[in-house]
Amino acid sequence: MSLFRQLDELLRGEKTVPGSLSENRVDLPLKTFVSLAIVLGGVYGFFMGWYAVLNREPVEYTQVLASVIKLPALFLLTLIITFPSLYVFNALVGCRMTFIGTLRLLVGAIVVNVTVAASLGPILAFFTLCTASYPFMVVLNVALLSVSGFVALGFLLHTLRRIVVRQPIVNSDPIESFAAADSPEFEKVSSRAPGALEQVSRDDREFGPANVVFKIWILLYGLVGAQMGWVLRPFIGAPDLPFQWFRERQGNFFLSVIKHLQDLFGSG
């Protein structure tokens, strides 16, 4: 149960309250959060794998198992591949975050990513039950995972700013606070801790080169992640192909998504 309490604290932003963070102290124990990433990634993978079960003759359940394993693997393997370069470049530009601190922060972002994805799982499950079209399922999955990816991205960048800035919380505009003072809700406003996705400072200049490195790294992570997804495929399982753990290595992710979009809008 403590696993879920930790997750809840992460989502509420209690783990990343400005001021409690510093370059070498990020309170996200790796063991707990890696297991959370595996469990929640597995939940989304579970919903993802059902399409193949429902649309293949004869019924084969191995795809569900494969997706449950592959989805968390996708995120964690991408991290393993891209993390060393991030760390080296961070050190080069003089960011004081420690190795373990950076790693914890990134695992936290992955947990946020898979949690949002898993929470969209029921919607995916419903559409899996209703849909026979393979291109639609591919596009829907890409869309859901993109949404969760962008939320995680927001989490990562905002948390990074909190680490770099380390100043007392400026909760809202002076004007907003002034207006709020008139309402009976005022006490609630001032006592509220900022959420995990909340911006604590509006000035971009204070963040320095570490921020630029992170942004470039995120691009790298996205590209490697997309291609990793392609290497690890099938996740959904095309109904006309037999089950395989891995497909042969050809093509790439982006070409495939474009092709599925064309299929979806072209011939339906």
Partner: peptide
Amino acid sequence: PGFVVLNTLLG
């Protein structure tokens, strides 16, 4: 579920 998680993340 998605709504609850999003609300939590937004604080």
